[in-house]
């Protein structure tokens, strides 16, 4: 990999009939990077991952994975990548150990040979190795699927929404596992609809409606947020939202947990806003300036686009 790039994507488009799932995608992923593809369902994440894993042909454009062309050299790509699709693709009637054994055999290796690589993850489910995969909890299925996807020591690991439908604790654990895998030198390409997971990646691509909104490090994405962002707290978020939307100075306002995140048109005096809030009955409202998170940025980029 003379270029130091694990994945190079050039002008990839994918159309299904008249539906444009992907439009002109361009970016690259460095060796050993943890790269996040972040966007809601239907944004085109799965199509892109399937193209990069040689499972789909792009309508136009091309891509290089591990130095191999995804169309011409698909056989070579399949030897060097690991792939975990959106559904945990396990054989539910096979036990934990039988699943792992089978996938090891498919790649011409054995559990023993690469045990070190998966030890951290697999050891957590090893006590249940005789249980059928269908009877595992969601978190355990996820760990087994990950073990299966890595058993052959891939150079690049593709994970399609590994944390969807998984509770917050299991999600945290999963990202810790990914960190450890990354530290072993494996490039990770992971997609997720959860914006908060962006901060755990080295770099991210934000994707919406088949186009890339931005590609950068999470820090730089946040820096690119060009308006001061305020957080306003009030007892009743519903009325707070309504009142702020009625205010002409408001540029964008979104609920964020207990408070709202808001940007104003240039030249707005924040004291005027506070006064307005007191007047509309938000007696104990509290306004402060904050650093935006990825989700703020995503919404801003989305609004700019449309």
């Amino acid at each position: 990999m003379q270029s130091g790039k694990s994945i190079i994507i050039e002008n990839i488009s994918k159309h299904y009939g008249s539906v444009k799932a992907l439009e002109n995608i361009n970016f690259s992923v460095d060796n050993g990077e943890m790269f996040g593809l972040i966007g809601p369902d239907g944004a085109g994440k799965t199509s892109l991952i399937r193209i990069l894993t040689s499972l789909l042909l792009p309508t136009s454009g091309n891509a290089i994975v591990n130095g191999y062309d995804i169309v011409k050299d698909y056989k070579k790509i399949r030897k060097t990548i690991g792939y975990m699709p959106g559904k945990f693709s396990l054989y539910y009637d096979l036990t934990v150990e039988e699943n792992l054994n089978f996938f090891a055999t498919v790649f011409g290796t054995t559990i023993k040979e690469n045990y070190d690589l998966i030890k951290d993850i697999y050891s957590q489910i090893e006590p249940f190795k005789d249980r059928q995969a269908g009877k595992l909890s969601g978190g355990m299925k996820q760990k087994l699927a990950l073990s299966c996807a890595m058993i052959h020591k891939p150079d690049v690991l593709f994970l399609d929404e590994p944390t969807t439908g998984v509770d917050a604790v299991s999600r945290k654990e999963f990202w810790l596992m990914l960190k450890k895998i990354k530290n072993k030198g494996i490039t990770i390409f992971v997609s997720t609809p959860y914006m908060d997971e962006a901060e755990l990646c080295d770099r991210v691509a934000l994707i919406q409606d088949g186009t890339i909104l931005t590609v950068d490090t999470p820090v730089n994405v946040v820096k690119s947020f060009d308006n001061p962002l305020y957080s306003i707290y009030s007892d009743n978020i519903y009325y707070l939202l309504k009142d702020l939307r009625a205010l002409s100075a408001t540029k964008s306002v979104f609920a964020f947990g207990q408070s709202v995140h808001i940007t104003f048109n240039n030249g707005t005096n924040i004291e005027d806003v506070n006064k307005y809030l007191k007047d509309t009955g938000h007696s104990n409202s509290n306004t402060k300036i904050i650093t935006p998170c990825i989700e703020d940025c995503f919404m801003q980029l989305m609004s700019v686009k449309s």
């Binding site: 040689s54 399949r78 792939y83 996938f103």
Partner: peptide, 8 residues
């Protein structure tokens, strides 16, 4: 899908 993405 996994089998197709593997060298089998």
């Amino acid at each position: 899908e996994v089998l197709l993405a593997s060298p089998i």
